[in-house]
Design a binder for these strands. Structure first.
Lengths: 153, 153
DNA sequence: CCGCAAGTGTAGCCCGTGCTACAAACTCAC
DNA sequence: GTGAGTTTGTAGCACGGGCTACACTTGCGG
């Protein structure tokens, strides 16, 4: 195989593709930060069980992930106590929510129905660069809300 | 905590969040199918090493993942031989590439620079529902390509 | 035909995230 | 204060996917 023209795929493509464990872990972190912020806002505190329900996983998974995020200083908690966001965690949550909202708004602007817009926003928000996010914001503004009547679907 | 108002988060939110191992595995499958298709087109065959380079992971990772995808009948290969797409694999690759192109085109339409558009498309393509994809296509067409001069940056 | 480099495969490790089953702590009501 | 029910934590398993180190094939060039 030494002879065949090597797949001289530009290194860039590898870069483009590379989505490592760290990326996934970072997504999880954002989801948790966002969820904790939501719960605190809604109920005054975030508990393991509520997080589990909100995120759709077992409480065990939450416990372990919260432990990891605590190691990473995004959350803080003590055994059998509720969960808080650290300063860094708050920042992360804010960014995440902002992204989330921008993407969601944008999808609605695009004409996507609420249900799908919400679902897709969850997935997309972790993958939009600052540039794309800015473009989304811009277009939503300059062209005015084009949705309204579709908000139900 | 039996008393406090339970986080009566709509079950829907859990549904919205739930992104399981299977989702990740499915994304990987799409990436591999797409990559294999690309390599076959470009070089006539897909080999482990080329895939590794293209995807930016070690050959070992490729070998194991290819084995899994072979189990799932998306790819076929034999030891030390090159890798083929099964019928199902081809179908998956086609869908993936179509999505990819639509998303990429759309991002360019949005005014995002090529580099970021490519990177973001990689991430986003796995998370757009059929509805969103359709909306993207529609808007690209009805409003004509608004990019061109920005394709470089 | 033989050796060597490139390609491919295997062993074995780590980590994140999912689970069930079980144990411990907590809290409320009595 | 105590018991019951809820919540939280722990043990132990599975799996995907990342890696390095090492072993084996392959195929080309001499």
């Amino acid at each position: 195989m030494a002879s065949r023209p090597k797949a001289t795929v530009t290194p860039a493509s590898a870069d483009t593709h590379r989505r490592t464990r760290e990326d996934h872990a970072a997504e999880t972190a954002q989801d948790y930060a966002e969820a904790v912020a939501d719960l605190i806002e809604a109920y005054g505190e975030a508990r393991v069980t509520d997080l589990a329900r909100l995120l759709g996983v077992s409480h065990v998974t939450v416990v372990r992930t919260v432990a990891r995020l605590q190691r990473e200083e995004l959350l803080s908690t003590r055994p059998y106590r509720s969960i808080f966001l650290t300063t860094r965690g708050k920042k992360l949550a804010d960014e995440a929510r902002r992204r989330h909202l921008v993407v969601l708004d944008f999808l609605l602007w695009l004409g996507v129905g609420l249900t799908n817009a919400q679902r897709d926003a969850e997935g997309i928000e972790h993958h939009v660069s600052a540039e794309t996010l800015a473009a989304m914001e811009r277009i939503c503004k300059t062209r005015g809300p084009r949705r309204k009547r579709r908000a139900g679907g």
